[in-house]
């Protein structure tokens, strides 16, 4: 990605506060984002909310890169009403890692993290209700992983619950 460094008073403050736990401040296509270590993400979100007015968690999502040792990108998108500014926070986590939940800072993270779990199989530690949200609870597999082909389904679930051989 041909991103350029992002520097302003906000990055300076975050740099002072979090030091080398933030790996990168960048701008791509005019959109600011930072890459942080997994354990720093929630403190950063909290800091941004309380100290910089980023009081609206827009979205939480993930991207799967199976060939990487730290397989998933977790992406948090924040917005500040007072500054009219958006920031993306990204972190890399490995398969089986349990990143801490953001529900303690932003209530909206509840369903968003459940969807990430449902689609990618990433469990959030400290989430009040870590269950699937769109797929049935008994469903096997997490469809937005890259090793889950688009033609795949949970045959057993389909046969038992829908009474048909295949939903394909």
């Amino acid at each position: 990605m041909a991103s350029v460094p992002w520097e302003d008073e906000l990055t300076k403050r975050l740099q002072d506060q979090f030091g080398d736990r933030i790996l990168e401040f960048s701008t791509y296509l005019g959109q600011n984002f930072l890459v942080a270590r997994p354990e720093a993400v929630i403190p950063i979100i909290e800091h941004l909310k309380l100290e910089a007015g980023f009081d609206y968690l827009v979205d939480v999502t993930a991207v799967d890169y199976p060939q990487r040792p730290e397989r998933f990108d977790l992406v948090y998108i924040l917005y500040s009403f007072s500054r009219n500014e958006r920031v993306r926070i990204k972190t890399r986590i490995a398969e089986g890692a349990t990143p801490p939940s953001a529900t303690g800072v932003h209530l909206t993270a509840n369903w968003l993290e459940r969807e990430v779990y449902d689609m990618f199989g990433i469990r959030f530690a400290g989430h009040p209700n870590m269950q699937r949200i769109l797929l049935p609870e008994e469903w096997q597999g997490h469809p937005l992983r890259k090793d889950y082909p688009i033609t795949r389904q949970d045959d057993r679930w389909v046969q038992e619950n829908l009474g048909i051989e295949s939903a394909q």
């Binding site: 990605m1 041909a2 791509y28 959109q31 827009v58 979205d59 998108i77 993306r88």
Partner: peptide, 17 residues
């Protein structure tokens, strides 16, 4: 080109991104 972007609009129901 390789990269990512978040774009949102004011849909009738709220922020659609």
């Amino acid at each position: 080109p390789v990269g990512e972007a978040y774009v949102s609009i004011e849909a009738p129901k709220g922020e659609l991104g």
